[in-house]
Nucleic acid binder design. Sequence first.
DNA 1: CTTGCATTTGACCATTTAGTAAACAATTCT
DNA 2: AGAATTGTTTACTAAATGGTCAAATGCAAG
Lengths: 205, 205
Amino acid sequence: MGRVSDGRERLMNAALDLIWEESYGAVTIDDICNRSKVKKGSFYYFFESKADLAVAALEHLWSTHTKPLMDEIFSPLLSPLERLDKAFKRAYDRQVELKQETGKVLGCPYFCIGCEMTDQEPRLGEKMREIVGRKRRYYESAIRDAVAAGEIAPCDPAEKALCLMAMVEGLLSQARILNDTAVLKNLPAMAMGLIGAKSIATPTV
Amino acid sequence: MGRVSDGRERLMNAALDLIWEESYGAVTIDDICNRSKVKKGSFYYFFESKADLAVAALEHLWSTHTKPLMDEIFSPLLSPLERLDKAFKRAYDRQVELKQETGKVLGCPYFCIGCEMTDQEPRLGEKMREIVGRKRRYYESAIRDAVAAGEIAPCDPAEKALCLMAMVEGLLSQARILNDTAVLKNLPAMAMGLIGAKSIATPTV
DNA sequence: CTTGCATTTGACCATTTAGTAAACAATTCT
DNA sequence: AGAATTGTTTACTAAATGGTCAAATGCAAG
């Protein structure tokens, strides 16, 4: 009952776009309102603060985009190494796509915002820790499966996942800093090398 | 002739501390003035803007701390693998030290600020690219030497250095996000593993 | 010791920003 | 239709922030 609105979602999308392109600190509530065509009165009708909106926006991004994508990439229908290889290739393709759309290599929103906001805005820091942890579990599980299947040498999956994610996120960050996707060109090969496997050749289209 | 002052340096140090602990966007000129006990009038006597100060502060950090430290760590008197191992161990020790001093795992200032500021404040972004590039050259050179000395398998040193740095910086970032040095516990072992070598055992004191 | 320069100070202004309030508009349920 | 509920708008306030200026203050060399 009552009036219906997509204002809440427009705000979350605008906030995410702006914060990802610039940074949390560089974006004001007015910026978000302008981009989403929502008036400030409505902003405060939906959210308590910028931090509150950011937390909601990031959880929204996770549940509507990241999680479904991760579930597809890490589908048990693929072999463990295929899952990982797919993940790395998607990461590269995504950045190329973003560069074309926005002119910028944006890297990983969770990581960028996480680094910026660990200690300020406790709820936001907590959310980032949560989401980064979720992502790691996908890698960890695939590595565990790969070891069990004898596809890679035995190792501590938790430790290896941490490392693997560090490399992927580290490369994404460097690509963002340099605004250059070339850095990521052989992310798949390098990441697969880290776990002691070869990247799966894909035919050039 | 005229009056002498350490105001400029006090400003740079305060700015660096604050920005590293929080973030560039979260720190105001007033904050920096308070911390450094320099009045705003003097701030604008020394610097044009916050970005201007940040650029100076980061270059200052590089030339007074980072470069000397890197030169010592990557001294040609050590074998290439010893240099790298030393670099990784120092990185870990430093974060433990910072955690004790500030209660926070701060990660790498160049990388954190770099991610936040790539596209805003062009001069600052440029400076970060510059410094990150300098750091990479130390790794690259050590890897090249290690290959030449037959200490590790042949590889593309530039690519390997990028990767290695990605892993180190990626782990540092995760440590910052989680505010936990445990993530870095076996950074040396993992990083040495990446280049196909073993970390050098050090006696526990 | 005084002159010239380098710094300091504090008061000040303009703008941006977060946040509020109350009237208004649209939708649905009864 | 008319409540009741949900969302929208506008105009407003208070505080924070960036930025300026002219006068005052120390230092150091001649």
